[in-house]
Design a protein around this nucleic acid. Structure first.
Length: 568
DNA sequence: GCCGTTTTCGGCCCGACTGTTTTCAGTCG
């Protein structure tokens, strides 16, 4: 078994144990062990003794060694034998945990979703002590709903909800301040729900406002401090939690619900060592005095820590790091990949320029598609020349680089001859076709693009669409080597459906000297706002600003293009 | 199951909400 399989198996063991009704700490021990393995950067070959990792003891180390040598382990086999497989998916149902599922199994003989549904319909569930009519109804509704909805939503799918809720809370008088926490704030690619933290001294009014939202699909819970609803946005159901707090508790509540869980555990352990206790409401010392903070900065400072950016709060080593050089949205001086009406964009060059000026950028590049991409009205040599004339003639208070997003064709050739692109400032090469090719063929195409002296950058290097499409087969280690050797820039495509390269891939190139650009690939001027998603992705990976070419001054960028992207 | 250590076992993050109870267990984040 490889490392990923082992991690997955440890998590499976935890799930089985949970259903078996095992001690909760024993269950979490297996989850912790899986997390410890995942966070360690070594491969299984390099990892001699798993027990050397904190969180993995003798017992789990034995299991890990079993797994890597034989592909299975006694405990897993035993659990599989004693627990019907059909019970496992039931854990995902709202309101059902290991204990209740265990009782449904033992006392009613339920072994899968269909049988659970039957038991509910026959009224057998409500007869169990601890269950009741309401529980039975909720379980039945959850079972019937099962599989209809994805567990986590790609971040692109919740953007509408984010903007809408933001606007509504902004406009509410009863709201003192608010922020979106949770995995969205940490810049994850998918989210389970949206967690809003709201400071207010009129909680009833805010509660009324939230429960009165016109697009409520279901109310999951509504207490004094927590409102939990499902909202409809077009075809998507977006779960959202709202926490209402007094302003004094805002910073610690925000921190708590930003998570991650693992990060919170680290913080609480640290507090404990100092004789303090962290909760949503503040930091309590040994005498029971609770200290509150205006900001998260002040909260971290209390523990002698620098501000830990939300994107870094994953329970790794973030409490031992400093983040001074991490890229921030304000560092971005331009956007180097965008489209106009010349190909498949919605705005003119002039309009895009004005939008970029409004964003405070000092430069931008217009990079429409090339002729191979007929569906996108790609530019041929003649139209490219005319467009670049128009760009040079555009009178705008911003440096506009000429550019192209040039297709890398299925056979590994490029859509334009060298003679065409040698005079283009920003030559972006990308793959939009023959995704099903072998890794060898894909790498041949990417290598051809990297080795071309005029190609500046590879766009969306894997071609994935989060939650929709895997992307083509890229040997990322090899691509990084090629990019380093040929000074080819790799893109972080900031489109929330892409985030490509991903944070995971970006971490792989931290030790190389490959340069990065964060681009929106905007087809409409609203999409220029996606820059934030791209920056978050880079921040998750810990990329310093100096590695990112569109944080450089226009002069530095020009010098770079002249040195590395022309033949001379 | 892991960890730390008062080296043999107790604590493991903490609080809100719900539905069931009639003071609390289970679930969730």
């Amino acid at each position: 078994m490889n490392k990923k399989d082992i991690i997955k198996t440890l998590e499976t063991i935890a799930v089985y144990l949970e259903v078996e009704g095992a001690n909760a700490f024993r269950v979490s021990a297996y989850r912790k062990a899986a997390g410890a393995l995942e966070r360690d950067e070594r491969s299984m070959e390099e990892l001699d003794d798993p027990a050397a990792l904190s969180g993995i003891g003798k017992g789990t180390a034995g299991i890990i060694n079993d797994l890597r040598e034989t592909g299975t382990t006694e405990l897993l086999e035993e659990l599989r034998e004693s627990i019907p497989e059909g019970l496992i998916p039931l854990l995902k149902l709202q309101g059902l945990g290991g204990k209740k599922i265990g009782r449904l199994y033992r006392e009613l003989g339920v072994t899968n979703a269909a049988e659970l549904k039957e038991a509910c319909e026959a009224g057998r569930v409500e007869e169990l002590s601890g269950f009741g009519k309401k529980s039975q109804e909720k379980i039945l509704a959850a079972v019937e709903d099962m599989g209809k909805r994805p567990e986590r939503l790609p971040v692109a799918g919740v953007m509408n909800a984010v903007h809408d809720l933001h606007a509504r809370l902004q406009a509410a008088d009863a709201v003192t301040r608010f922020e979106l926490a949770g995995s969205f704030r940490r810049g994850r690619e998918t989210v389970k729900d949206l967690d809003f933290i709201i400071s207010t001294d009129k909680p009833e009014a805010v509660k009324e406002l939230l429960l009165g939202l016109g697009n409520i699909h279901a109310v999951i819970g509504s207490g004094d401090t927590k409102i939990s609803v499902e909202l409809s946005y077009d075809d998507t159901i977006v779960p959202a939690d709202f926490r209402l707090v007094e302003d004094g508790a805002f910073a610690t509540t925000l921190h708590h619900f930003t998570g991650s869980k693992d990060h919170n555990v680290l913080m609480r352990q640290l507090a404990k060592e100092r004789g303090e206790k962290i909760s949503e409401y503040g930091v309590e010392d040994a005498d029971g005095n609770v200290k509150q903070f205006d900001t998260e900065q002040a909260f971290f400072a209390h523990f002698d820590l620098p501000f830990v950016p939300p994107e870094q709060r994953e329970g790794r080593d973030e409490l031992e790091q400093s983040f001074d050089d991490l890229v921030a949205l304000e560092d971005v001086k331009g956007d180097l990949h965008m489209h106009t009406t010349w190909s498949d964009g919605a705005q003119s060059i002039q309009e895009m320029a004005e939008a970029c000026i409004a964003k405070g950028y000092s430069y931008m590049a217009i990079t429409d598609h090339s002729k191979f991409l007929r569906v996108a009205n790609g530019l041929n040599e003649e139209r490219l020349a005319r467009q670049h004339e128009e760009i040079r003639a555009t009178d705008a208070d911003i440096q506009i680089f000429t550019g192209t997003e040039m297709d890398i064709l299925p056979d590994g050739t490029l859509d334009f001859e060298d003679a065409i692109i040698e005079s283009v400032d920003m030559v972006i090469a990308s793959i939009h076709s023959s995704f099903q090719q072998s890794e060898e063929e894909i790498m041949k195409r990417l290598e051809a693009a990297c080795r071309n002296p005029y190609v500046t950058m590879i766009a969306h290097p894997t071609g994935r669409l989060i939650g929709k499409r895997e992307g083509y087969k890229v040997d990322m280690q090899r691509l990084i080597e090629l990019a380093a050797e040929t000074a080819t820039v790799l893109e972080v495509n900031a489109n929330p459906s892409r985030l490509d390269l991903s944070a995971e891939h970006l971490r792989m190139l931290l030790d190389s000297d490959v340069r990065i650009a964060i681009n929106t690939d905007a087809h409409h001027f609203d999409m220029l706002e996606d820059m934030e998603s791209g920056v978050k992705t880079a921040r998750r990976a810990g990329i310093p600003a100096e590695r990112i070419i569109n944080t450089w001054s226009a002069d530095d960028l020009k010098a770079f293009l002249q040195t590395f992207c022309t033949q001379s």
